[in-house]
């Protein structure tokens, strides 16, 4: 009974959003130069973040699934920190990090704070943690015995990984990349603190919702929100269709 009430609440919330705006408002919003920039930056930053997250998550997830070593539980806890930290704290911590000497030196080479790289870094900090959890759960489900057999058949460790383990992890890889992409799309707190909310510079879709709300343009805020809802639903459908359900649930479990 309580479960069905919750479902009703979710559906009612989305229906209210859809009823609040009209296709005309949606069209008008998409004509705005700022919103089009935010859409482009969101697509670019989320895609880069998803690829980076996967690149990091595959080796870390594999080592965490296969190896036992001293300090593994500490490393495990460290990897979960971005998931449990309040988003604003992540943004603040990144801001402070780039005020240190190494951070300032890096800024001289590549401007990060309040620029596009800061958006990607802020999204990456959280999304990668979810991708690591997903890949770890994926590799834990693949028997290490298969790699051992591959070694006796003449494979080097890297060949056993590329030819035996990774092809079987493809559904987990898809889940990890889409999950990282979706998490990045919704990221707001760290971006607000670390990247600012400058139009046509560091504005991504959640920033647009915030900026439009703050000037009372609720129709535009709702229209952009609906775009994000559509993207989230598309990602969920993609994972349901092609991703691996167990790794999805384990990956998002805190």
């Amino acid at each position: 009974m309580i479960g069905s009430l919750y479902l009703v609440l979710v559906v009612a919330m989305l229906a209210a959003d859809a009823a609040y705006t009209s296709p005309w408002h949606l069209w008008q919003s998409l004509q705005s130069r700022e919103i089009r920039y935010a859409i482009r930056l969101s697509l670019l930053s989320c895609s880069l973040t998803a690829i980076l997250s996967l690149w990091v998550a595959i080796p870390i997830g594999y080592v965490m699934a296969r190896q036992d070593f001293r300090g593994k539980s500490v490393l495990d806890a460290l990897l979960d920190i971005p998931i449990v930290l309040p988003p604003l704290v992540i943004g603040l911590s990144l801001l402070i990090l780039f005020q240190t000497v190494p951070g300032r030196l890096l800024e001289r080479v590549v401007p990060v704070t309040y620029a596009v790289p800061s958006v990607i870094l802020a999204q990456f900090m959280v999304a990668c943690a979810f991708a690591v959890r997903t890949m770890r759960a994926t590799f834990e489900q693949i028997s290490p015995r298969q790699e051992q057999v591959a070694l006796t058949l003449g494979c080097r460790r890297s060949q056993a990984f590329w030819w035996v383990v990774l092809p079987q992890a493809r559904r987990g890889v898809l889940t990890a990349v889409t999950l990282a992409w979706a998490r990045s799309l919704g990221e707001f707190g760290p971006i607000l603190v670390f990247s600012g909310a400058t139009r046509l510079r560091t504005e991504v879709l959640p920033t647009t919702v915030f900026l439009e709300l703050s000037v009372g343009n609720i129709e535009a805020a709702v229209a952009v929100s609906l775009l994000m809802v559509a993207a989230a639903v598309a990602v969920l459908l993609l994972i349901r269709a092609y991703g691996s359900e167990p790794t999805l649930t384990q990956g998002v479990r805190p």
């Binding site: 298969q146 591959a150 006796t152 035996v164 092809p167």
Partner: peptide
Amino acid sequence: IGLVPQDRALFEH
């Protein structure tokens, strides 16, 4: 050495 482990460990893909 050819190895056949207990669970056979066939490659599902």
